[in-house]
């Protein structure tokens, strides 16, 4: 592979400068959030000067304060349980459905796949009222089921897995069948190992979506005890901590830590997953 002629050095330097400046502004807000969370209220409330950019004495107590004052540990647990169960169960079901649409033959396949795709197009604002009513009839409202069960299947997830299943050769599936495997064994022992990265990507997407979801929890969560972390943190500003930016920034930091951890652990799955989504047409 021949490399292209490079532009002159000043242009290359300028491009690097612009791109790295942009990349820096991606991290700056998060860095400022963490810095602020460690300042005293007084330090944070003053117009910043060069001298007060860094906290003089790190106020780790703000984290404790944010957690205790707003019961964040309980909401952490609600959010984590909802996100983990949605991810594990949802990915399993979407993967099986995507496998069926890609590799099995049955009557009504096109119609059923069309229905699954349709759900991708409809904005939640059209269906949330009756989704809420159905959840309340089932006794889900204000329970963790409401945060999990409606998300155990998604048109996007099914579509995504069906697309990546193309990478599994039909001959392998046929060979599995000749060996006497049933459909589930074929899915588990033949298809799943091949598309494992895509399953991981879908898992990461599902986790992030569930963890960050705001609109639906606002609708289905009524009481204190069932709140998710984003709801609890959105409420922080309305409560007694409205004036304490450092405590709010501590709460914000608490909210993003699991995402940052998941992101760095599974960065490859993330970026590859996004890439596959983008070139699907």
């Amino acid at each position: 592979m021949s490399t292209l002629r490079s532009p002159p050095l000043p242009i290359r330097l300028a491009v690097h400068a612009v791109v790295y400046l942009g990349a820096f502004t991606m991290l700056l807000p998060m860095a400022w959030m963490v810095l602020t969370s460690l300042k005293t209220d007084l330090e944070a409330a003053q117009a910043p000067t060069w001298a007060t950019l860094l906290p003089s004495v790190p106020q780790w107590g703000h984290y404790h304060e944010a957690i205790r004052a707003a019961d964040l540990d309980r909401f952490y647990w609600n959010s984590a349980l909802a996100a983990i169960l949605t991810t594990v169960l949802g990915v399993a079901h979407n993967a099986l459905a995507g496998f069926a649409f890609a590799k099995l033959r049955f009557a009504g396949k096109r119609v059923l796949f069309g229905l699954a795709l349709t759900t991708m197009m409809v904005p939640i604002q059209v269906y949330f009222i009756f989704a809420y009513i159905i959840c309340s009839k089932l006794g889900f409202v204000d329970n963790i089921q409401a945060l999990i069960v409606p998300f155990l299947a998604s048109g996007f997830g099914i579509f995504y897995i069906r697309q990546v299943m193309n990478a599994v050769p039909d001959s392998l599936i046929e060979a599995g069948r000749l060996d006497g495997m049933n459909e589930f064994d074929i899915f588990w022992y033949v298809a799943r190992p091949i598309i494992w990265p895509a399953i991981a990507s879908l898992g990461v997407f599902t986790f992030v979506f569930s963890w960050n979801n705001l609109f639906w929890p606002l609708i289905v969560v009524d009481s204190e005890r069932s709140k998710t972390l984003p709801l609890a943190i959105a409420d922080l500003s309305a409560g007694q901590y409205v004036d304490s930016w450092p405590v709010q920034m501590a709460a914000g930091t608490i909210l993003i830590v699991p995402l940052v951890v998941v992101f760095f652990l599974l960065q490859r799955a993330f970026v590859q997953g996004v890439a596959v989504t983008g070139i699907k047409e």
Binding site: P29, M30, W32, M33, W211, N212, L214, P230, I233, A234, S237, Q248, M249, A251, G252, T253, L255, I256, L259
Partner: peptide, 8 residues
Amino acid sequence: SIVAIGYV
């Protein structure tokens, strides 16, 4: 999460 981003 947008909640965190919005706050910051």
